[in-house]
């Protein structure tokens, strides 16, 4: 039972990070109909911001929000420089643009910072844990779960209670009609990128806090996981992205926990197999966006 509980906590913690990442992709997709593959590079940017802040001697409590702010700024710049000019292009154009942005950023990191991975100075507290009964919960995991919950609650409030949030939801439903109602496209899209940057930044801090190093290509794995999670949840659906993220976390952790040793080498393949099975049953994802297939922008 303890084993099961402990693994459940592990799954919630990992799933939470995946959920943040998938949400970042989903929020852009819901409005622009674009998968932003440069999302991972926003995490890498966060990582480098943490690294430089650490080298400058800033304490983690200041460095972390600063790093998230850097990610938000980068995301908005990304939109302004790369995506706004192709906003009216086909989905394929936007997809390829996002790949180009990702590769350009990776190359910049390699040439301007370092090709090799750089250590990030973290407080020792992050490598400790709290014992609750027979359970051991890493400070890192507590941080991950808390941040995920806070962000989900805050995002929910933002989308339901603020003008920009309501405009964004309207734009996600039907961008043309929303514009006719006086919603400004630039503000909405810029806002969506800012939120996606914040989500990438928060996930980036959690990711780097776990690995204690940052390298130019580090964004690839997380963006891939986020992509799988958002497809599993239902592309463009925000609740779906969260569900997909947690589902992927649970699948990965519980396969590792309960698969017999001989089967362990195949766990990644099995996890993807389960995702495919789920998609066969629910082709539009776990919680699909209701306006799936409608014209965007």
């Amino acid at each position: 039972m303890d084993f099961f509980l402990q693994q459940t906590i592990n799954a919630v913690s990992l799933g939470g990070t995946y959920a943040l990442l998938a949400l970042g992709l989903a929020i852009i997709f819901s409005i622009m109909g674009m998968i932003n593959f440069a999302h991972g590079e926003l995490m890498t940017t966060t990582g480098y911001a943490l690294m430089f802040a650490g080298l400058a001697g800033l304490p983690f409590v200041i460095a972390a929000p600063l790093a998230v702010a850097v990610a938000i700024g980068t995301a908005m710049l990304m939109e302004r420089i790369a995506f706004r000019p192709v906003r009216k292009g086909s989905p394929a154009t936007m997809l390829v643009t996002s790949f180009a942005v990702a590769v350009i950023l990776q190359t910049l990191f390699q040439n301007l910072i370092a090709t090799r991975s750089q250590p990030v100075i973290l407080p020792d507290a992050l490598a400790q844990s709290v014992a609750i009964g027979d359970l051991t919960i890493g400070v890192n995991q507590i941080l991950s779960i808390t941040i995920t919950v806070i962000i989900l609650v805050a995002l929910n409030w933002f989308l339901k209670r603020t003008t920009l949030g309501i405009a964004m939801r309207a734009a996600a439903e039907d961008f043309s009609v929303a514009r006719l109602m006086g919603v400004r496209a630039n503000a909405v899209i810029s806002g969506a990128f800012a939120i996606s940057g914040a989500l990438a930044g928060a996930a980036g801090v959690l990711w780097v806090a776990q690995r204690a190093s940052v390298d130019p290509l580090m964004g690839f794995v997380p963006v891939l996981k986020a992509f799988i999670a958002s497809i599993l949840g239902g592309l463009g659906s925000l609740t779906g992205a969260v569900a997909g993220g947690f589902a992927l976390g649970f699948i990965e952790i519980f396969l590792t926990a309960y698969l017999p040793e001989d089967w362990q080498p195949f766990k990644e393949a099995l996890a993807l197999g389960i995702v495919i099975l789920l998609l066969l049953v629910r082709p539009n994802g776990l919680i699909p966006a209701f306006n799936i297939g409608r014209e965007k922008v």
């Binding site: 402990q6 592990n10 690839f220 952790i253 590792t256 080498p265 766990k267």
Partner: peptide
């Protein structure tokens, strides 16, 4: 006593570690 596997770039080892601890 046991052997675990991971995927390169996996990052989260909590499930393996819980098994080691058990």
């Amino acid at each position: 006593a046991g052997q675990g596997t991971y995927v390169i770039g996996q990052q989260d080892f909590s499930a393996e570690i819980t098994k080691i601890k058990a």
